[in-house]
Design a protein around this nucleic acid. Structure first.
Lengths: 163, 163
DNA sequence: AGTGAAAGCCTTATGTA
DNA sequence: TACATAAGGCTTTCACT
């Protein structure tokens, strides 16, 4: 389950199409790939079973949901031991403001991507949920001016495959 | 298009359900929300039109695609002027290794989330695509041990609404 | 805006090669 | 494993409220 998976041209084309629009029908996939719709169904099911496709997620606009300000919080957790960092991550993940949490190499142990309503909300979040905790040694807050999601993720060296 | 949108209980329930499984059928949404399937269709179409729903995206496992190593690159671009940073962002976004780019406050102008095959690949990426460029003054690389996506994003103060 | 029903398309199980 | 087909379910439209 941890290893890389062998994908052929059809798999790659299907993934590329579904990344553009995850609601593409099997008929559309069939037309675009040249194989039968029922085969596309099999392929997608296999990609899900093998763990390549983790899920179909809705992408929402935070600003439209009243969370117009986003930030990255670099957090040092000290001492950096399992019995402290496990519950720390669990609590942070459960916050409605959290979008993603990264455990990193380097002096800052965690990076937390948060979406809040405004600066007041951010200050409250930092003070009440981070610096107030004994295991949190340091928090550095950086505001996000702008962000970009990048193109479809595909295996290395497949830039032109299947086109 | 930039302002927050008014969402009622039905909208919130639909968003919550679709975030758990973006492939939920309108019939399932109808059953869960208590309104007709055709109404759910209208609601989802409205949420898309108003920009709350940006898209339906496929979530893939980078490791299964031969990108078993992820990192965050903090980048200083100097001088930090539009005519330099615009092309810089465009080039970085176009890299197949890039997953996301953030423009931030603070001394590090950009944070780039990348997924690569291995350490050799990461070294190549940093040397060839970042430090080799004249406008890139500094790059700091942090490896990602582990990462977590967080729970559904909803408007502040709606934790219990509609349940 | 929401509803219910009807028409048509899509998904998906199955048999075959 | 891929295909074609068919049955059933889902989406989507529409007239009505």
């Amino acid at each position: 389950m941890t290893d890389s998976v062998v994908l052929d041209t059809v798999d790659l084309r299907i993934l590329r199409l579904l990344q553009n629009d995850a609601r593409a029908t099997y008929r559309e996939l069939a037309e675009a790939t040249g194989v039968a719709a029922s085969t596309c169904l099999d392929r997608v099911a296999r990609l899900r079973r093998s763990g390549v496709i983790l899920g179909h997620r809705l992408e929402l606009d935070p600003a439209k949901l009243g969370r117009g300000l986003q930030a990255l919080l670099s957090v040092q957790v000290r001492p950096h031991r399992r019995e402290l960092v496990g519950p720390f991550v669990d609590r942070i993940r459960a916050l409605p403001e959290s979008r993603a949490v990264f455990h990193l190499t380097g002096p800052d142990d965690y990076l937390v991507h948060v979406a809040v309503a405004d600066m007041t909300d951010l200050q409250r979040l930092v003070l009440d949920e981070f610096t107030s905790r004994r295991e949190v040694a340091r928090v550095e807050t950086r505001l996000i001016f702008q962000q970009w999601e990048c193109g479809p993720m595909l295996p290395p060296g497949t830039a032109g495959t299947g086109r």
